[in-house]
Write a protein that binds this DNA or RNA. Structure first.
Lengths: 221, 221
DNA sequence: GTCTATATTGTGATAGAC
DNA sequence: GTCTATCACAATATAGAC
């Protein structure tokens, strides 16, 4: 309605990435720790060391900024895993590499799962955005491409008698659950189990060693 | 500061549970689907079929109402599982019963995990509340009581040579991950895998049958 | 206990100087 | 591009009649 036609950020701009980037960094941090609804433009501005008006200059509205931050968060976590799964590596290697990748990434960004889950739970429209971001494909295509390759490998093992049948979707859901959930529910686990940050870090390192074997063993015939 | 000393809701009140309960029900629903920061008192009032002022009459502030709603959500999920784990049932039965319990409960309240994770991620103070709610004990005590019993059972199996050693904490984290994460991440999985609600329901029913075996198999020596 | 106002912030967004 | 000042309205909270 009273939207401006400011040309400011319209096209791709090459110079001045610095300020825009500072804002995006700050937005990422604030959105992750407060959630989209709980985040305040003022806090983002302060975090970025700039003025609140600049946020609107670069991103027009909170909603735009929220989308950008979510996109960044999702891209930080998903594509690498998809690449591993779609790669030509052996099945056992894929498991080990995914466990390793996730535990490493989430150790450095432990609140990311909680944020992404929260966003997708409370903002259904983010789902479309996520899919669109992951590639220009329709939802079904991503799934079928990735799971097709995985399914072939599982079939191979099943035929060889070294693994029992499992749907590739189940395979992925179980693996992701074991990797990601401990971080998503870390506040709860820490409290109930009585772990401090250091103990949690040790817990994760132990998982890094044990989880691949645990998971693969469950698939034995 | 400008708090009223209204005696309205101060003590435990026996009568008029009806309205208070309607408000709490509505609050639960709205907080779960919007998150605490995204929830609006107006929407809660409308949902409850009462006036917004009544919300303050009964619960004084949004924060109080949010606490009450969170408490209710947590109590809906945790105590039953703790009872099962602390019970005298055989280890294998505990696994089956927990899987069954969670998949049933979460089928009826699929957004609960996302909400609880979101709350605990964005509102650290809820952690203390959660622990305090689960019992009058200090955090360490809950953990040690529950895990003590579980540990004894695991030791038994290990000694008998039917299971390899696993920390009871890891046992629980893995089991909870496999049960709860699929619901917490359901919006993502549905999109990536391309499932509709019905397919998801089937997916869960299959899990109910397969998950106990999957989990127990991973623990074989 | 329940309602209709209304007071009082909080917060996203914009105007306009520099 | 960046700032200060301010607007407009959404949202919590309260007063006071019934």
């Amino acid at each position: 309605m009273r939207r401006l036609k400011k040309s400011g950020r319209v096209g791709r701009a090459r110079r001045d990435v610095s300020t825009e980037q500072k804002i995006l960094d700050a937005a990422h941090a604030v959105f992750v720790r407060r959630g989209t609804a709980g985040a305040r433009m003022q806090e983002i501005a302060a975090d970025a060391g700039v003025n609140q008006a600049l946020l609107h200059y670069y991103f027009r509205s909170k909603e735009h900024l929220a989308r950008a931050a979510f996109e960044r968060a999702a891209m930080q976590l998903m594509p690498a895993a998809i690449r591993i799964i779609a790669s030509g590596a052996a099945l056992e290697d894929k498991v080990t590499r995914i466990v390793d990748l996730y535990l490493t990434q989430l150790t450095h960004a432990p609140y990311l799962p909680g944020y992404i889950i929260s966003e997708l739970t409370h903002h259904p429209e983010r789902v479309r955005q996520l899919i669109a971001t992951l590639s220009g494909l329709a939802p079904e295509d991503i799934g079928s491409r990735v799971f097709g390759a995985l399914n072939a490998q599982i079939d191979e093992r099943v035929t060889a008698g070294t693994m029992r049948p499992i749907a590739p979707q189940t395979f992925m859901v179980n693996l992701m659950s074991l990797c990601v959930f401990p971080f998503a529910a870390a506040p709860m686990f820490k409290a109930v189990i009585g772990m401090d940050d250091e103990a949690f870090a040790r817990f994760i390192e132990q998982r890094r060693r044990e989880l691949p074997a645990f998971f693969l063993k469950a698939l034995r015939p």
